[in-house]
Amino acid sequence: CSKEGIMLQGMDEFHISLVEFFLSKRSFESYALCHDLCMSLPIDSLATVLKKANDDDVCTLKAGHKAKVLTVAIETRDQPWLVSKHDVPFIDLGSEYLVISRIPYDAKITVWSTRFARLAHELHQLSGSLDIQIIHEGARFTALDEGSGKKGCFIFRRAKVVDEYRDSEDDEPAGAIIHEFHRYFHKATSLRVSTKYLVHASKRAPLSSKVSVLMKEDQPLLVQYDFYEGVLKFYIAPRIAD
């Protein structure tokens, strides 16, 4: 917690995907902080407590200096005398957080998040990994099923508003040409990542109608959702030539 808001960071046990969630202080009814605070919490316990709240309830999160627990108070909005309190004990993760250095990315595309979710889902049916290429003309997401030899390909073309789907007969790649409305480009870049983790990242589509994909050669892929209250980022470690 800092004076700007709350930053949440979590990583899967295989260190393949790291999620960073920033919630600005402007998304809270009130936000008070004496000094920066870093807490390590078991995410399932926190989720269990927060799920006890109804959509209209008021949640107050509190932790004191040198606290060992985060206290979550849940209040019914029209019955403020009705309060339930839950403590989520801190855990020791061994380190506070990972420092993610800000790097200049070589290429970025922004696409509709629902299309991105469909792309991830469909390519995951084909293969455990996919190649993402961003070139001057656009972006290409390709997956190959080694067993059957089937290849799936989604192409995002720059400044095109066509939206068509080509089925794969005679081994031609099936592809969707999708309107892509924002992009920056510095140099041609390609990365290979696990489709499973891309599917996971693409499921956050309800947060924002747009999603950005940022790449730099030999660096983790960044999948980013920007929305009014903050930003959600997924860093996915690439698969590299051994």
Binding site: M11, F14, H15, I16, S17, L18, G94, S95, E96, Y97, L98, V99, I100, S101, S129, R192, S194, Q219, P220, Y235, A237, P238, R239, I240, A241, D242
Partner: peptide, 14 residues
């Protein structure tokens, strides 16, 4: 051969 890289190769714990 393609290997899955580890995020800890890129980012260091504080």
């Amino acid at each position: 051969l393609v290997a899955q890289s580890d995020l800890l190769d890129y980012y260091k714990p504080k």
